[in-house]
Nucleic acid binder design. Structure first.
Length: 394
DNA sequence: TTTCCACAGGAATAAAGGGCGA
DNA sequence: TCGCCCTTTATTCCTGTGGAAA
């Protein structure tokens, strides 16, 4: 590695960050109705009353998190002008936290300074809740707790305790409001009725973006992110159309535009074209596979490997028993023992949820029975590439 | 209308592993 | 070090499902 040097690349981007997820625009476009409802639900905070618990739901990438950041920023700014109102917000993302215990630990660590963080295991659950309530009391005032992707928490315990913490005497100094954000439209119905009534005091439903709304979002970001005249005609429309097709997800559309810009820059071109968008789409699909399964156990990856193999030999859609058969053969060739059929079914279900594969229910009736057919949802090339990177590195 | 099949998926449980406090 | 508490991953067992065929 001799003579390495960096030189600034072509100037397609003006402010590339404007296409990243964490960037909060000065104005949220295409979400007027949702913002109005959400604003009304937050009103008690500025009146220095006990905050309502708010539940936001809608598919991923429809602006729930962005709207939350946008409104909370405004709320924090305006709260400073109100006498006697001491507002704090704590936000955690529950992705990767699948129990109340883990979420409570994450909240404690979010509230504590880096030197006194606690570990993810080892404490009795009651102790973790006590740590949390102590921290909340220390903060005091009005505390809004944002639980993004709250549907990842598999038990109700934290969602039951937090809204009741004050009435149960667990906290005395702080007025708590919980804002739960969920991608899972059915999550609300899965909650026990006690939790539902308290957590879902105020509900705001976010609908999917249509292609026109997505175009507005992309146009808005384009103005900030790119230099003038660096996007070919049709690039924005194409990203918006893909975004609308992929369930109205603005994040995916923005990622696509960002990736297309990156590709153009890598190729030292000065204009982003529709061709770059196509290439970017392929690349993002590979990333989605890698991101989805990189934390999987080896067996989960082999299950996907088995389905990929069946797709290559033209045997998809494949029923469960065929996937299990292919999986067992691959694993044995690698010199491992396969996991049970039940576990393979769980892996297939998870891959389905991640959008890497898709399933269709088939019912052949008497003599044939009911079963599922699985096939790859992402392109074969993307999945192959993603898998080979993971299996090689693992 | 009833039967039947092939799973789907929930529940209970176990084993292994890691962190904590005494 | 030991017992406790929690997690993750897995297994076994079981009931439920639904539509074509009888």
């Amino acid at each position: 590695m001799n003579d390495v040097s960096f030189t600034p690349s072509t100037t397609i981007f003006e402010q590339r960050e404007a296409l990243l997820e964490e960037w909060t625009p000065e104005e949220l476009v295409g979400r007027d109705q949702e913002l109005q409802q959400y604003h009304a639900a937050l009103q008690p905070v500025i009146n220095n009353e006990t905050p309502s618990n708010i539940f936001l739901y809608g598919k991923s990438g429809v602006g729930k998190t962005a709207a939350t950041r946008y409104l909370l920023q405004a709320l924090e700014r305006d709260a400073m002008a109100v006498d006697g109102l001491d507002l704090h917000t704590v936000e955690i993302n529950c992705d990767g936290l699948n129990s109340s215990y883990q979420a409570a630990v994450a909240l404690v660590n979010e509230l504590r300074d880096p030197a006194s963080q606690i570990s993810n295991t080892g404490y009795p659950q009651a102790s973790v809740y006590q740590f949390l309530f102590d921290e909340l009391d220390t903060v005091g005032g009005t505390v809004l707790i944002v639980l993004d992707e709250v549907d990842h928490i598999e038990d109700d315990s934290l969602l039951y305790k937090l809204p009741r913490a004050r009435s149960n005497g667990d906290v005395t100094n702080a007025k708590l409001g919980v804002i739960g954000i969920s991608n899972d439209l059915d999550f609300r119905n899965q909650l026990s009725s006690k939790v539902r009534s308290s957590l879902c005091e105020k509900e705001v439903s976010f609908s999917a973006y249509n292609a026109n709304e997505l175009k507005l979002v992309l146009e808005q970001r384009k103005e900030v992110a790119f230099q003038p005249d660096t996007l070919d005609d049709g690039v924005i429309e194409m990203c918006a159309a893909y975004g609308a097709k992929d369930s109205g997800d603005a994040r995916q559309a923005l990622d696509l535009l960002l990736e297309a810009g990156d590709l153009a820059r890598e190729q030292k071109e000065e204009i982003v074209t529709e061709d770059h968008v196509q290439q970017a789409r392929e690349r993002l699909q590979t990333d989605q596979v890698i991101k989805g399964i990189k934390n999987y156990s080896e067996h989960g990856q082999y299950v996907l490997h088995a389905l990929t193999h069946l797709a290559e030999t033209g045997e998809t859609p494949a029923r469960t028993r065929d996937v299990v058969g292919a999986y067992e053969q691959i694993v044995r060739e690698e010199g491992f023992d396969p996991v049970s059929e039940r576990s393979v079914r769980d892996y297939l279900g998870e891959l389905d949820q991640l959008g890497i594969i898709s399933s269709t229910e088939i019912n052949k009736g008497k003599g044939g029975g009911k079963f599922k057919h699985y096939e790859l949802e992402q392109s074969l090339t993307s999945v192959r590439l993603g898998l080979s990177e993971l299996l090689d590195s693992g």
